[in-house]
């Protein structure tokens, strides 16, 4: 059964790479139109990936939400699912060019670590914990999508401003579409993360009788939430708010990723951090 989890994850990784390859080939080629098979491959990848995580749950009797490798896999799936939803904005499919490599990277690292339970002894397991973790991952996935939309917005803005009517201009969506995608991803991500933090704190206070502010996970969560606030504030009103928001989304995502790396490297041994 363990073999099945790895096989399905490997297959999903291959499909993500193929879907990214279709986009790269389209951008590199003369035709700016994304072939129909691109979204179809993405849909297949999401389905296979979901089946891989279902196989994990069946094998281990728990949801793949604890431990670094399973968490990376779930995060990758959520980002891919976001991308799949974004693909309904037909022209926004090309955001996959930024997101699919990220999804593939997360999944590849997860596979390299081995997608299996961490064996960490948690003080509490149950539906509330799973909901907390799932909401938190949704928040991070939302930020990742906002990052992709922001990055492409800045790229397309530059092309338009500097009158470069080349491949990037033709391939990527309009500024307005990118703005809408970024705004919605932030709204979903921020709502999910706020609920996750609320649940987490309620659980911590209930069982540990403290806020556990020193816990790296909690620190990371708060930092991400503050980053969300900063990005949302950057988008609020004033001239050029869309571009400011795009820039803030990119910087915010980078800050959150760097913060994770720093916190993980400095976390005390034995401390459960993803």
């Amino acid at each position: 059964m363990m073999g099945m989890v790895a096989i399905l994850h490997g297959l999903a990784l291959t499909l993500y790479v193929i879907a990214a390859g279709v986009l790269v080939r389209t951008l590199a080629g003369a035709r700016p139109r994304v072939p129909q098979r691109g979204p179809a491959v993405l849909a297949a990848a999401v389905l296979v990936h979901g089946a891989g995580l279902a196989a994990y749950a069946a094998e281990h009797g728990e949801l793949p939400l604890v431990g670094l490798a399973p968490s990376l896999s779930v995060s990758a799936l959520l980002i891919a699912a976001f991308l799949f939803a974004v693909a309904f904005f037909r022209e926004a499919r090309t955001l996959g060019l930024v997101l699919l490599p990220l999804v593939a990277l997360l999944l590849a690292v997860g596979l390299a670590l081995g997608i299996r339970p961490s064996g960490e002894a948690l003080a509490f397991r149950g539906p509330w914990l799973y909901l907390h973790v799932l909401l938190a991952f949704t928040g991070y996935a939302g930020l990742a999508v906002a990052f992709a939309a922001g990055l492409v917005y800045l790229l397309q803005f530059r092309e338009l401003k500097e009158k470069h009517f080349g491949r990037v201009f033709r391939f990527f969506p309009s500024l307005d579409t990118l703005d809408v995608v970024g705004r919605r991803a932030l709204a979903i991500g921020f709502t999910a993360l706020t609920l996750a933090l609320g649940l987490g704190w309620a659980w911590t206070i209930r069982f540990r009788h403290s806020f556990a502010i020193g816990d790296p996970e909690v620190m990371w969560g708060i930092l991400t939430w503050l980053t969300f606030m900063g990005v949302i504030a950057a988008r609020a009103g004033g001239p050029a708010r869309s571009r400011r928001g795009a820039l803030a989304s990119v910087v915010g995502f980078v800050v959150v990723v760097l913060a994770y790396v720093v916190l993980r490297l400095t976390a005390a041994k034995g401390m459960a951090f993803l």
Binding site: R31, R33, L160, F169, P173, S174, L175, D176, V180
Partner: peptide, 24 residues
Amino acid sequence: ETTLGAGAASVPAAAVELARKIFG
């Protein structure tokens, strides 16, 4: 299967194409 009809082929259509790249 081809992009034979893709992109603007006249000056007014090019203006519209630019507008769509900004506003959708």
